[in-house]
Amino acid sequence: MSNVGIVIVSHSPKIAEGAADMVRQMVGDAVPLAWTGGDVDGGLGTNVAGILEAIENAWSPAGVAILVDLGGAETNSEMAVEMLPEDRRARVLVCNAPVVEGAVIAATESSGGSSLTAVKRSAEEFYA
């Protein structure tokens, strides 16, 4: 059985790493997890190459849910998804949810073996 992977994308590497720490502590190791943050020069921002690498690191046959913070994180994540090999593209979804809470809830849902769409729905229901 494989659980849905979780990718955390923040403008701040510290926030991305911290959110990932919270996921690990609260949910454990049953979920593939990766984080990325910062621009290519190490400043605040997000970058497509880093997001692609994180998707690769959190890859699961069940798919990957991406949690993002502000604007560019979402745009860059969508760009990264489009640049994936075609057979993987449909199995990666960007969630419209707060990055920290969304990551913990998505990982909790994933750890129970839920599908990618269920993981995304749970993360987004927090926002509703």
């Binding site: 621009d39 921002g45 970058n47 497509v48 560019g72 745009t75 860059n76 969508e78 760009m79 640049m83």
Partner: peptide
């Protein structure tokens, strides 16, 4: 541009 600009502008101008 997509890979290097970052922000939302990278994907927009790059696209």
């Amino acid at each position: 541009l997509v890979m290097k600009v970052g922000g939302a502008s990278g994907p927009l101008v790059g696209t």
